[in-house]
Design a protein around this nucleic acid. Structure first.
Length: 586
RNA sequence: GAUUGCGUAGCUCAGUCGGUAGAGCAGCGGCCUUUUAAGCCGUAGGUCCUGGGUUCAAGUCCCAGCGCAAUCACCA
């Protein structure tokens, strides 16, 4: 795909969109996940190589570490008779489950029995549970005729001891020669070592996969954030904190689905490849369908399709959707990001507020237990979750404040007194105010002087924005200068907006047309009037409430992550080298 | 887009005033049957991000570029 070049002149107003972006206004000094003291243990690296024929020599520039691992691979296969890339295994237990089968009584009984057996020359009775486990080697201590290993899987770490006297000769050699990062399959009774560590006393050892890549530093691991993102497959297991974040993310998304489903919303999937990128004011990525010889855009929002669903009769719909926006990257923006958009027929921005508050409260309550179980910081008293230096309190009700009131509180002046507002703007150093329409000055002054009043530690709905800065939202029936829109702020980030949706096709058409007039040449290359959408409104869309929530930012908050890149498995990074592009994209 | 910082062995990092490359871990060879960042003996490993420049001499100073991070701007 070819990205449009970033420009400097977006339209001064937004489309009727559920925009998820918003400025992240405050600095947060955070330790990176990798620096957490609790994580400074047992780092190992593993670079999964693409399929390489086992007989092929190493690629050109592999280090001597990789070369020695390849030599070991050959040795495992040729001398020890182990298939280095394993096979289906039955009866494997996750390491945490295996650890739970440890019995103090069985261990003590066996301990006593083996002492007696040693004295009498008999055989000790053994009632210890026998487990079969697999995991990546993250520690390896060779004591000569006894090898201690720590294996790791997604559930945790477990020690294994391989005694020369307890396993076949080739299995003992395998354990001795195992590298950090190798995946081993081990069976044996589970007991304790002399130092008290719960430990599987191996009776068999085999290989699940030989690791060929040089591991990261055993103690400090991967701490360079760039390497952690580029080689996430190493970061994910070398840094258990990383794996926990993504496991939590999965459960959060799952809970969101259950919440929405329980309220009778239907989950739908709408096009990512769109002939017209509508629903938000953002630069799209462009692409092309060859067989149809058709230019296409990656979606910037699903909004216009979800509204078509309302027209079609789906009363309550939602989509957990990946959006693609050809814009800047920072701590709260990734070019592709996940949002949830929700539409409810005969709802409005008030029903969306209730839904949002219930959902976020429920998620926060769930996360208190979740975090405690994961061994992370959590507050025992109520739905209070740490985010960096903050303690964010999700107790209901969330704070609600009208845009106009917050403006007054922040500036001491009435936002409708444009003269005073402009004076305030100049006082704040907003020297370009003269070029802006009155309401845009109001908006800038609001962001400068009023938004900082929002308590970042309390989820806050800012409601009833001026119509003029949200021109595609339905104006309030009580006061046409205002519109039925709110934005929710948490931790200084905008998490999402909601609207009472516009369903008058004539007004919508007029506003689209007006918006297009403001587009410059570059914008007009991708901004097109979606006539089919207007046609769908003419069929008749019920009045509705609409909501957008930035899932990545929400996960940041709930998992105490400082950057959106810490909650996206594979965030976009620049290519390391200008390698020849595959497939000559136009 | 601007500013600042960082970029040295596979990884984590030192490198003084500009004097010709260091440690730990990982690796390799050896010893060790209870280790917890195991230990001991020996050994190998460098495009100091890239390209210029200054200098007798550059990891170090200067310029440009690349990548990452932070802050700001943009984005609404």
């Amino acid at each position: 795909m070819t990205a449009l070049r970033p420009g400097q002149s977006p339209p001064p107003v937004r489309m009727p969109s559920l925009r998820i972006d918003g400025a992240m206004e405050f600095p947060l000094k955070r330790r990176s996940v990798a620096e957490t003291p609790a994580n400074r243990r047992w780092w190992v690296g593993f670079g999964s190589m693409s399929e390489v024929s086992p007989q092929e020599p190493a690629p050109l520039s592999e280090s001597e570490i990789v070369a020695s691992r390849r030599a070991k691979l050959k040795r495992f296969r040729d001398e020890l008779g182990f298939e280095p890339y394993g096979q289906r295994e039955a009866g494997l237990l996750p390491l945490a489950n295996a650890r739970k089968l440890f019995s103090e009584d069985a261990h003590a009984a066996f301990d006593a029995a083996s002492k007696e057996a040693k004295a009498t020359g008999g055989v000790a009775a053994d009632s210890r549970a026998v487990v079969r486990v697999a995991g990546r080697v993250v520690q390896h201590r060779d004591m000569g005729k006894l090898v201690f290993l720590f294996l790791r899987d997604a559930t945790g770490d477990l020690q294994v001891s391989v005694s020369k006297s307890a396993v076949a000769a080739n299995a003992f050699e395998l354990a001795k020669l195992a590298d950090y990062g190798d995946i081993l399959v081990i069976e044996g009774p589970i007991g304790r070592t002399m130092k008290g560590e719960v430990c599987v006393w191996a009776t068999t050892v085999s290989l699940g996969a030989k690791s060929l890549a040089a591991p990261p530093e055993k103690w400090h691991g991967l701490s360079d954030p760039e390497l952690r993102y580029r080689r996430r497959y190493v970061d994910m297991y070398a840094n258990p904190e990383t794996a926990k974040v993504f496991a939590m993310r999965a459960r959060i998304v799952s809970r969101i689905r259950r919440f929405m489903d329980a309220r009778g919303f239907l989950e739908v999937e709408t096009p990512v490849l769109q002939p017209i990128a509508g629903g938000a004011a953002a630069r799209p990525f462009t692409t092309h369908h060859n067989a149809l010889d058709m230019p296409l855009f990656m979606r910037i929002a699903p909004e216009l399709y979800l509204k078509r669903c309302l027209v079609g009769g789906m009363g309550k719909v939602y989509e957990i959707n990946r959006n693609f926006r050809n814009e800047g990257i920072d701590r709260s923006h990734n070019p592709e990001f996940t949002a949830m958009e929700v539409y409810e027929a005969f709802g409005d921005y008030g029903t969306m507020m209730e839904l949002t508050e219930s959902l976020l409260h429920e998620l926060a309550v769930g996360m208190v237990d979740e975090r405690a179980n994961a061994g992370l910081r959590a507050n025992a008293e109520g739905p209070v979750l740490p985010w960096g230096e903050m303690e964010i309190n999700y107790a209901r009700p969330f704070v609600r404040v009208k845009f106009e009131e917050l403006f007054k509180r922040g500036t001491g002046i009435d936002m409708r007194d444009f003269g005073a507002v402009r004076a305030k703007a100049r006082e704040l150093g907003l020297h370009h105010e003269a070029k802006l329409d009155d309401w845009l000055v109001v908006n800038e002054v609001f962001e400068e002087a009023a938004e900082p009043l929002i308590d970042p530690c309390r989820p806050t709905f800012v409601t009833d924005y001026p119509s003029a800065i949200s021109p595609l939202t339905r104006p309030s029936r009580r006061d046409p200068a205002l519109c039925e829109r709110w934005d929710i702020f948490i931790g200084g980030m905008e998490i999402g907006p909601a609207y009472t949706e516009l369903n008058d096709p004539d007004i919508q058409l007029a506003k689209f047309t007006e918006q297009l007039k403001g587009a410059d040449d570059e914008e007009s290359t991708f901004r097109t009037l979606d006539e089919d959408f207007i046609e769908s409104l003419r069929v008749g869309m019920p009045p509705a409430g609409g909501l957008g929530i930035g899932i990545d930012r929400l996960v940041m908050l709930l998992t105490d992550s400082a950057s959106i890149r810490d909650v996206i498995l594979f965030p976009l990074l620049k290519s390391m080298a200008p390698a020849a592009s595959e497939g000559s994209a136009e």
